[in-house]
């Protein structure tokens, strides 16, 4: 049984952004030596997300726009208060809720050393509160 875990940093450059990380995940699987098993990808933040969809710019824009429609910035959020543990106010409830809605992880089978995914399935790191340097983990398990 092989278990390989990598922590990968990504620098978002906008307030909201869909960043295609599929090639990075492919490479981690390739390097892991796992021929048959699973790969799990997880974002390590609560105001960013991770999701799978077709990899085209119009959909990237539609997802971000629709999330903003579902979770507008100007709403009455309880999170808008002083957070002692952070030494600052929390006013990014919308980013947290988008993270909840879109999810933070995905899992794919690995077969013959490659991810098994549909031809249009693309893995995105979703930034909802950038720009920030973020971290996600890729864990490959198998033999």
């Amino acid at each position: 049984m092989i278990i390989k875990l990598e922590r990968i940093k990504v620098q978002s450059r906008k307030s909201e952004e869909a960043i295609n990380i599929t090639p990075v995940v492919d490479e981690v699987v390739h390097k892991s030596g796992v021929r048959h098993g699973l790969v799990n990808v997880m974002n390590m933040h609560t105001s960013a997300g991770l999701l799978v969809t077709e990899g085209i710019p119009c959909l990237e824009e539609d997802i971000l726009t629709h999330f903003t429609r579902l979770v507008p910035e100007d709403q009455d959020y309880h999170h808008r208060r002083y957070l002692d543990y952070d030494g600052r106010l929390g006013f990014n409830a919308d980013a947290h809720l988008k993270s909840v809605l879109g999810g933070i992880s995905c899992c794919f089978p690995v077969e013959d050393g490659k991810i098994v995914r549909g031809s249009r399935q693309t893995i995105y790191f979703m930034e909802y509160d950038g720009p920030l340097e973020r971290t996600y983990v890729v864990q490959v398990l198998g033999e």
Binding site: Q11, R13, Y85, G87, R88, E133
Partner: peptide, 20 residues
């Protein structure tokens, strides 16, 4: 002393925060 709990960021983030 300053009391802030956010993650440390590369200098690049500072410039990007200014840019946006």
């Amino acid at each position: 002393v300053f009391h802030i709990g956010n993650n440390f960021q590369p200098l690049e983030t500072f410039f990007l925060q200014m840019d946006v």
